[in-house]
């Protein structure tokens, strides 16, 4: 290859879950990988203009990120990740994401790259990555080697994040578990201001989404044995494992999120021993409403502990 093929990763949705896997796999095969810049108001505005009104905030942000990458890379990676087995499913947005985005940008001339992970249809992640390798003319052997390396890097990163997270529980300060999809909590425009506000209020925010996916999904059964969605199962598992070590839970979701609207209701009904704040982000301009709710939630916890 003279000039390496460039793969663009929109910094939204499943990027936060798979960024190490994607980076490592493509770089191992000699590609260059670029990412869109963190979400700003412009990302959201541009994405909202491309989406139908009823789409969730996260999808609008995703389209904004794709737009930022158009023409800047050879391929934009948008996988179709449907499920990891029965009752370990993804929101249907992730089934539609590739087709939907490709259609939104059909006149741009941009090339998109996808893979299909769907265990119910016996399509594994491994097979999907072998397909990606073949698409670019690599042997199964070379693709397999890159995938194994990428998987190892992913595990290392997950373990490191989980370890860092464990340390947070040792803090003497008030600890609040944030139950949210990683693409909500890690997003620079919607999740980060919440995290920063909490840190600025002398509170330790802890992410519920940082958990081993299998362990989490297993532990989550205690709160809901029949929950259909994998990511929500993991978050439920994190609550089960950590509820004794936290002072409160914030259910942070992007409007309108189908899985969250159901699962957050389950959490509110079944977790009775901790204060819970349900915070729905709608891309509103002002942060005042959010700050009022966060501030009073922290006050409630301090009231309880006699610190106010």
């Amino acid at each position: 290859m003279d000039k390496p093929i460039t793969i663009g990763l929109p910094r939204a949705m499943l990027y936060y879950r798979y960024k190490t896997l994607w980076h490592s796999f493509f770089e191992e095969l000699g590609f260059s990988v670029i990412e869109s810049a963190p979400t700003s108001k412009l990302t959201l505005e541009e994405g909202a203009a491309l989406a139908i009104d009823e789409a969730c905030l996260s999808l609008k942000i995703f389209l904004g990120h794709v737009k930022a990458l158009i023409g800047k890379c050879d391929y934009i990676l948008i996988p179709r990740i449907s499920n990891f087995g029965i009752n370990h499913e993804m929101c249907c947005r992730f089934e539609a994401l590739y087709d939907l985005t490709r259609n939104v940008f059909r006149e741009s001339g941009q090339k998109f790259l996808t893979y299909n992970a769907d265990m119910i249809q016996k399509k594994s992640e491994w097979a999907a990555f072998m397909g990606l390798g073949q698409f670019f003319g690599f042997t199964v052997k070379a693709a397999n080697k890159a995938y194994r390396t990428a998987k190892k890097a992913e595990q290392r990163q997950q373990k490191a994040e989980q370890k860092k997270q464990e340390l947070l529980y040792r803090s003497e300060k008030i600890k609040i578990l944030i139950a949210a999809h990683s693409y909500v909590i890690c997003d620079a425009y919607i999740g980060k201001p919440v995290i920063e506000f909490l840190k600025g209020s002398d509170v330790v925010p802890i992410r519920a989404d940082v958990i081993d996916p299998e362990d989490g999904a297993k532990a989550g059964k205690e709160l809901s044995p029949t929950c259909k969605w994998q990511i929500n199962r993991e978050i439920l598992g994190s609550i089960v494992q950590n509820r004794d070590k936290t002072d409160g839970i914030i259910l942070l979701s992007a409007f309108p999120c189908g899985p969250d609207s159901m699962v957050n209701e389950i959490i509110a009904r079944r977790v009775k021993d901790l204060p819970i704040l349900n915070l729905v982000m709608d891309g509103q301009n002002g942060t005042a409403g959010v700050e009022t709710r966060l501030e009073s939630f922290i006050d409630i916890i301090r009231f309880k502990e006699g610190k106010l």
């Binding site: 409007f255 009073s296 009231f303 309880k304």
Partner: peptide
């Protein structure tokens, strides 16, 4: 005598 929970109207 201390507030333990609250809710506020949403959107």
């Amino acid at each position: 005598g201390v507030a333990v929970d609250y809710a506020m109207n949403t959107l």
